[in-house]
Design a protein around this nucleic acid. Sequence first.
DNA 1: CAGAGAAAGCTTAAAGGAACCTTAGATGGA
DNA 2: TCCATCTAAGGTTCCTTTAAGCTTTCTCTG
Lengths: 224, 224
Amino acid sequence: MKLLYAEDELAMSEAVVDALEFHKYTVDAVYDGADALYYAQHGDYDGIILDIMMPKRSGTEVLKELRQAGIGTPVLLLTAKGEVEDRIAGLDCGADDYLTKPFALGELLARVRAMLRRREDFKPDILSFGDLQLNMQSYELSRGSEHVLLPKLEYQLMELLMRNHGLYLSTEDILTKIWGYETESDAGIVWVYLSYLRKRLAALGSTVSIRAKRGIGYTLEAAP
Amino acid sequence: MKLLYAEDELAMSEAVVDALEFHKYTVDAVYDGADALYYAQHGDYDGIILDIMMPKRSGTEVLKELRQAGIGTPVLLLTAKGEVEDRIAGLDCGADDYLTKPFALGELLARVRAMLRRREDFKPDILSFGDLQLNMQSYELSRGSEHVLLPKLEYQLMELLMRNHGLYLSTEDILTKIWGYETESDAGIVWVYLSYLRKRLAALGSTVSIRAKRGIGYTLEAAP
DNA sequence: CAGAGAAAGCTTAAAGGAACCTTAGATGGA
DNA sequence: TCCATCTAAGGTTCCTTTAAGCTTTCTCTG
C-alpha cells in the first residue's frame, strides 16, 4: 500500500513517515502543496494525507485540483484545531476524512486503515491465491498449517503480486510501487526480492510459483 | 444482474432476497446445498451467495465442486462467527469474499457490489479471430483449451495482425510498428517471426493462417 | 509459350547477448 | 547481536538476430 504524505513541518513529517513505514506502508513525503499535487497526479497512490496549511498551495487547493482532474484517490486532511471552515470546505471538495492536529499516531493509523478499507469496499483482509493465503494484519504467508512471517519488503512484493495475479508486472512497476516514485535502486533489487519470495514459496511447498517473462514482467502462477 | 442465494434459514432468506430485489438484482433462492449446486451449474448467474452451514451439502463442498467443474462465477461465502478454518478453506477453494454472520444488510450489498465490480475489472482483454483468441494480459494465444505463451515479439506481431485482419501489412509496416521507426534490421527478421507464428498456428491446429501476397504484404485468413 | 533467371518469400540452426537469477557478504538500525 | 536490506559479481537461460540455403512466384527473352 503506497501513501503520499504532504506536510511542511519536517520533524512532524519524519515521525509520521517512520510510523507509517513501520506499519508496512510505502510512503513518499513531500513538503509543499505544489509537490503534493505533482506527486499525487503522477505517482499512483492508494491514499493521500494532506496537511491544509502548506507553502505554495494549500491542502484544499490541491484536493480540489485533484478531484477536477478526475483523480479519486482517497484523501485524509490534516487541519489545525478550530479551523472549521477549512474542514467543511475540505469535505466539500471530496476529502474522505479529516483529523485535527495535534493527533496521536495511533489515531492517524486507524483513520488511514479505515480510509483504505472503505475505499476497497470491505475487502477481506486475507488475500488468497492458489494454495496460499496472505494475512494482511499479521503479515503471515500461509499454506495450510504452515506459516511464515514475512519481512516488510517481501510482504509488500507478495501483496502486489497477489493483488495483480494474472497480470504481468514489470520491474519498473514493482520498483515504483514498492520503493517509491523516486528511487536510486534498479531492477537488481527487485530480482533479489523475487528470489527471496521464491525461496519462501519453496519452503512452504506451495504449488504457486513466480513466472518471469523476458521483457514483460512477472506474475503468479498456480500449478494444477 | 442475476444472483443465486443459498441459505437454509427461511426468515433470513426472505429478508435478504427482499433487500437484494429492492436493489434491482434478480435473485433465485435455494435452501440446501444440493439445490445450490444444481442451480449454480445450470443457471448462468453473475454471482452466488453461499451459506456454509446447509443441509445435504455444505457451502464449501458446493464451492469446491463448482470450481472443479470450471465454473468461475464469483462466490460470496457466509460463515458463522469464529469459524476461521471454514473461512480459510473457503478462500482456498476459490471464494471471492466472505462475510461473517450476523451482518448488516448494507454490508452484504456492498460486498456483492464489490465482488461483481472486481470481476468486471479483471475481465481480460481478448482479441479474437477465426478460432483463435489472444489474451492481452497473459500473452497467451489459445484455440479452445490449447494455450501457448508467446514471447514478446511473436505476441506483438500476432496482435498487429489480429488488430488489422482483412488488411495487408507490408514488411515495412510491420518493421516500423514493431521494431520502431529507426531500426537496422530488414525484412528478413519479419520473415523469421512470421515463420515462428505459422509454426504456432500449426501446433494449435488452428484454421487460421497467414497469407502472403507478393509485393503487397501479409494478412490473417480463416479457412472455413 | 517455354524456360531461365531474378526477386521475393520461407525455414532452420546456431551465435550472441541482454535479461534474469542466486549467493555471499557489507551495511546499518533496533 | 540479530535481522532486514542492499550491493556486487558470477552464472544461467531464453529471446532475438544473423546467416545461409531453400522454395515459390513473377518477368523477361528467345
